[in-house]
């Protein structure tokens, strides 16, 4: 397994390298002077000259790339055109909001999707099966922004149960350590703030989590059905084991393997959905920031976001592969 993991790790490197090249080239593919693009239309000639020097724009591409990589590895992503703050600072402030949202959405999706799939599989063609598969189909067919708006209308406007925006009521003041408000309020021991931040998380997380939830339910069901047909399960059954035990002991782990493989993928999709969800719920995360950066042509910021998100995606997949290797012993022998 060690060799397998090492191989996976090594394979992640060229992807990350490729991502950095693409982000690097992105700026140079946009029509116009890269220095101008980096600093915006209103940059002074003096600042332009400075950045040309800094980026080495008069030098060959590979020199420019190596300079860019050196800065990148030093954690210097430049400054945002619009806010003039360091891109790293901006990412540090905004990324945790998205992490919190996507993790919450993933929890919602797993907690509901997998049990629903298991129950559906064990009671194939029952009313529950039909109903939950219909809901799952609905889930994958729904635009996340529409679902978000409908949730907002029903639960916030109509029933008044949940807040409409933000991560925490302003009356709470918790020290920001991780910028994950749920974690920060636990660290501060402020349980009211914890409850409040969770309360703010519910609607966005449900909106964002619905699609992966539906996917997990459908996958778990079909994978479970497959496993239940396997010989060893039949053997277990014929030995007279209780059905519950058959499912829990012999089938579940194997049935979940394919589900685990798509968790990483679904995380990537969540980042997709986050762009829309954050827009609907005014969630100050990186999805909204990315959208704004694109619309404001804030390229230094956009570069930073793309690098961060792509790296996160690659690393999540790596982690999933490790879990996968652990779950599926056959990997050893490949």
């Amino acid at each position: 397994m060690g060799r397998y993991l090492a191989k996976r790790l090594l394979l992640a490197i060229p992807i990350l390298f490729g991502v950095s090249v693409i982000v690097f080239l992105f700026l140079r593919l946009i029509p116009g002077d890269p220095a101008q693009v980096m600093l915006g239309e209103k940059a002074t000639p003096q600042a332009l000259a400075e950045i040309r020097q800094e980026m080495g724009l008069d030098k060959p591409l590979y020199v420019q790339y190596s300079r860019y990589m050196v800065k990148l590895l030093q954690g210097d992503l430049g400054r945002s055109i619009t806010s003039h703050t360091r891109v790293t600072e901006e990412l540090g402030a905004r990324f945790p909001a998205t992490v919190e949202l996507t993790i919450a959405a993933m929890i919602v999706a797993l907690l509901i999707g997998i049990p629903a799939g298991i129950i559906s599989a064990t009671r194939q063609y029952s009313f529950f099966d039909n109903a939950s598969m219909f809901v799952a189909l609905l889930g994958v067919s729904m635009p996340v922004f529409w679902l978000g708006l409908m949730l907002l209308w029903f639960f916030s406007f109509y029933l008044g149960w949940f807040p409409m925006s933000a991560r925490l009521d302003v009356s709470f003041d918790i020290p920001t350590i991780t910028n994950l408000y749920v974690v920060d309020s636990i660290l501060a021991g402020n349980w009211a703030a914890l409850a409040n931040s969770l309360w703010h998380l519910v609607l966005p997380a449900v909106a964002l989590g619905t699609i992966p939830m539906a996917t997990f339910a459908r996958m778990t069901r079909s994978s479970m059905l497959e496993v239940l047909r396997q010989d060893y399960v039949r053997t277990a059954r014929s030995k007279g084991l209780a059905e519950r035990l058959v499912i829990a002991k012999h089938s579940l782990k194997n049935a979940l393997i394919p589900v685990v493989t798509v968790i990483g993928l679904e995380f990537g999709l969540l980042l997709n959905g986050a762009v829309m969800t954050e827009t609907i719920f005014a969630w100050p995360g990186i999805g909204k920031l990315a959208f704004d950066a694109i619309m404001q042509r804030d390229f230094p910021l956009l570069q930073g976001i793309l690098l961060l998100v792509a790296a996160a995606f690659v690393l999540i997949n790596l982690a999933v592969d490790m879990i996968y290797a652990y779950l599926d012993p056959r990997i050893h022998y490949e």
Binding site: L11, T215, N272
Partner: peptide
């Protein structure tokens, strides 16, 4: 939302492809 539908109910474990991200069968 890209792979939204492709992985629904595919029959067996997706073989982990050499390359990231993990690829649905």
């Amino acid at each position: 939302m890209l792979y939204l539908n492709s992985e629904q109910g595919f029959p067996g474990p997706a073989p982990a492809q050499p390359g990231l991200p993990a690829q649905p069968a």
